[in-house]
Amino acid sequence: MDFAAAIMITVITATTPLLIAALGELVVEKSGVLNLGIEGMMATGAACGFAAAILTGSTFVGVAAAIMAGMALSAVFAFLVLGLAANQVASGLALTIGGIGLSGLIGAGFVGTTRQPVPRFEFPDLSAVELLKDFPYISEIAGVLQFVFGQDPFVYVSLVLAGGIFWFLGRSRAGLLLKAIGENQVSAHSLGLKVVWTRFLAILFGGACAGLAGAYLSLVYTPFWSPGMTAGRGWIALALVVFASWRPVRLLFGAYFFGAATVLQLHAQAASLGIPAQLLSAFPYIATIIALVIMSVGRTSIGAPASLGTPFVPDR
């Protein structure tokens, strides 16, 4: 496998957890709820996923445990902000702090343990097949096919998720209702839409995505568990939603842009270009700020749901 393919694989690996977590948050925010707790849910998902995978030896159980953990935490958040109409910013921050603490508790016994990363799919090398080996460009074609079909399962899940959310928000009736609730909760309520229930489901979905993204970190990316391993990725996912102006397709590209920036700065550091390492580490963040500024200068409709972050209390 050549150098370019190797870089692309690291880009994909860096991007996938960001993409999954950000897609979940996109749906949550489209319903009008701001959940700042992604980082905490990811951390807990990573710890639970790793612990369950080690204890049972099953990756599948690990992933399921991570998803459940993310959903459980998000259910607490939902109880606070929907049930008690608590402030969403404060509740979300509490969720992040609490989730990171919880992950430390769960993961403490597993520090230093490693397991095999979730394997990539194996696509047969067509250039080795007797019948095809004289076909023109066969080695290049085989390489591309092996690359396209040879990623780990999470990558395909993240792409299917992006497509599914694009379809859900843009084409489906349920998605239309969800957007309406995020746009104007008072009107939605007066039309008889189930504001609280819809938001509850959206928050659970966001929690599941954050948990899955956490599992990716501890089961594929590293694959071990250490405290603080999410390293701010939850916050980056949050920024990505704004960066993508709440659109799934832009989110897909934004996540890959950010993933590429992260990886490229590592390679730039390795190549010792004479630029301080700290500056290069900061590059993805600087790129995000520049992109955000360019977007807001363009004054195109930013697209934030109008009810985002406002508690909903119907009078009875």
Binding site: K179, A180, N184, G192
Partner: peptide
């Protein structure tokens, strides 16, 4: 028919009708 319209400003006319 509400005094303060129960409409969704960012959505189209048809979408506004569809949600109800």
């Amino acid at each position: 028919v509400f005094q303060h319209f129960s409409l969704f400003e960012q959505m189209t006319v048809a979408e506004n009708i569809a949600v109800s």
